[in-house]
Amino acid sequence: MKEQIESISHLEVNKVAIHGKKLKIKNTNTEIILSKNQKKLLLCLMKKINEKRVIIEIIWGEGGCNTNEMNYHQLIYKTRKKLVNKGIPEDFIMTIPRYGLCLNMGFVHQNTNEQAWLNKSNFSDSEVTE
């Protein structure tokens, strides 16, 4: 499975695409350069590989559990931070307690006319209604 993820250079799932080391959100100007491990993490999630143990094995292989566990949490933190800095909601990557992660399918399948997550940044706080 690790080799399958590492060999992917292009993958699209609805409005989310990975081209090389770039994450692209279709119908927006959002394009994010990913690290090698960030790309592997997002490819896993796009391919519905959600279990923490499997994700760790794909990204770092089998090895020191404590080190890989810390690397896993650090990778998630840095990836979320990078995405949020580009206007993508923090819950784009969702934690499944005691299991792993998944992509926020509401965002992934969101109709292109319903881009409230992006449009909110274009308005002042007084103009945004929830």
Rank of each mutant, 00 (worst) to 15 (best):
M1R: 13
M1D: 10
M1S: 14
K2C: 04
E3Y: 07
Q4T: 10
I5C: 06
I5F: 01
S7E: 10
I8Q: 08
S9T: 14
V13D: 10
K15I: 15
A17H: 01
I18G: 02
I18N: 04
G20N: 15
K22R: 09
N27Y: 15
T28P: 05
E31T: 12
E31A: 10
E31V: 11
E31Y: 00
I33P: 01
L34Q: 08
S35L: 12
N37G: 03
L41G: 03
L42P: 00
L42T: 01
L42W: 01
L43I: 15
C44E: 09
L45K: 02
L45I: 02
K48T: 07
E51D: 06
K52A: 13
R53I: 12
R53Y: 09
I55M: 06
I55Y: 02
I56Q: 07
I56T: 06
E57H: 08
I58S: 02
I58D: 01
W60I: 07
W60E: 06
E62K: 11
G63N: 05
G64E: 15
N66C: 09
N66E: 13
N66P: 04
N66W: 05
N68Y: 03
N71A: 12
Y72V: 04
H73D: 14
Q74W: 02
Q74Y: 05
L75T: 05
K78D: 14
K78F: 14
T79C: 11
R80T: 08
K82D: 12
L83W: 00
V84T: 14
V84K: 12
V84Y: 07
N85H: 12
N85Q: 15
G87I: 01
G87Y: 01
G87L: 02
I88L: 14
E90G: 12
E90I: 07
D91M: 07
D91W: 05
F92N: 08
I93M: 06
I96S: 02
P97R: 09
P97V: 05
Y99D: 08
Y99T: 11
G100M: 04
G100L: 04
L101Y: 14
L101M: 07
L103Y: 00
N104I: 02
H109E: 12
Q110M: 15
N111I: 06
N111L: 08
T112E: 15
N113M: 14
N113C: 10
N113R: 14
Q115V: 04
A116M: 11
W117T: 06
L118I: 05
L118C: 01
N119T: 13
K120C: 04
S121A: 11
N122Q: 13
N122W: 12
N122L: 15
S124M: 04
S124H: 07
V128K: 09
T129E: 11
T129D: 07
